[in-house]
Amino acid sequence: MTGPDPQVLARARARMLGAAASLPASAPVPSGLTRVSDGSRVWALPEWPDGATPSVLEEYETAPMPLDRPGQARRVLAAALRCCWTRLDDSPWPGGTAALAAVLEVYVTMTRGDADLMRRWAVGDLRRLADTGWLLVDEDAGSVRPGPRTALWAEDTLAPLRALLRRLPPPPDEGGPQA
């Protein structure tokens, strides 16, 4: 008797671990999933048909992005991209690594209110964005970079995002404001 089919095991592993979990670069990626790699690691992300709506998530029993404050999370993602995606003419993936402190400072300059409270909320959103594969956050190292989900953005859809990021405040190490 032979062991389990590697494709079946790979699909089960990808489904169980989710978008935020990376695998060794040699790991198989089953059909229906897209292989996204940064060289040493690979992520298996679902392939969605063009024009797919959120109802597809229900059909595939895939949890949507868990966001309490989606508008704030989008701003946190934009601040992270502003710091990590420094060459906007290139693809956002794999992007560069930025200091977590720089991302928080860009976010604070985009918002109103108590800066310390904004930073605390942003850290929570950074964690949620990391849990869903939009960002890769290493809190111990104090760094953040684009997550594997950004690799799935079609090139022809990036123009508005590039325009938005050009309007955001620059990271502190680029001569931006210090909060």
Rank of each mutant, 00 (worst) to 15 (best):
L88Q: 11
A78I: 02
R87C: 10
D90A: 15
A63V: 09
V42G: 10
E59H: 12
T86P: 05
S31P: 09
W85E: 03
S26D: 07
S37I: 13
R41K: 07
S40V: 14
V76R: 06
T109P: 00
E59A: 14
L88C: 05
R74H: 09
P54M: 11
E61R: 12
P94D: 06
T86D: 08
S26P: 01
P49L: 11
V106I: 11
A79W: 13
R74Y: 00
L33V: 12
P94N: 03
L45Y: 03
V36W: 11
G39R: 08
G113D: 02
T34R: 15
S26Y: 01
E58Y: 07
V108F: 02
S22T: 12
D89W: 10
W43C: 09
E59R: 13
C83V: 02
P30K: 13
Y60M: 14
L33I: 07
Y107W: 13
D68W: 05
S26W: 02
V106Y: 05
L33Y: 15
T86R: 15
V29F: 05
M110R: 10
A63D: 11
D116H: 08
G96Y: 10
G51I: 05
S26K: 03
C83G: 05
D68M: 01
L57H: 12
C84N: 07
R69C: 01
G51L: 03
S91K: 07
C84A: 14
S40Y: 08
W43I: 02
S22H: 15
C84G: 12
D89V: 14
W43D: 01
P46R: 11
V76H: 07
P28Q: 07
P94T: 06
R35F: 07
D68H: 09
D38K: 10
E59C: 07
A99K: 14
C83M: 12
R35P: 00
Q72H: 10
S55R: 10
M110Y: 05
P64F: 01
W43M: 09
A98Y: 08
D90Y: 07
T53I: 05
P24N: 11
T53E: 11
P28Y: 08
C84L: 09
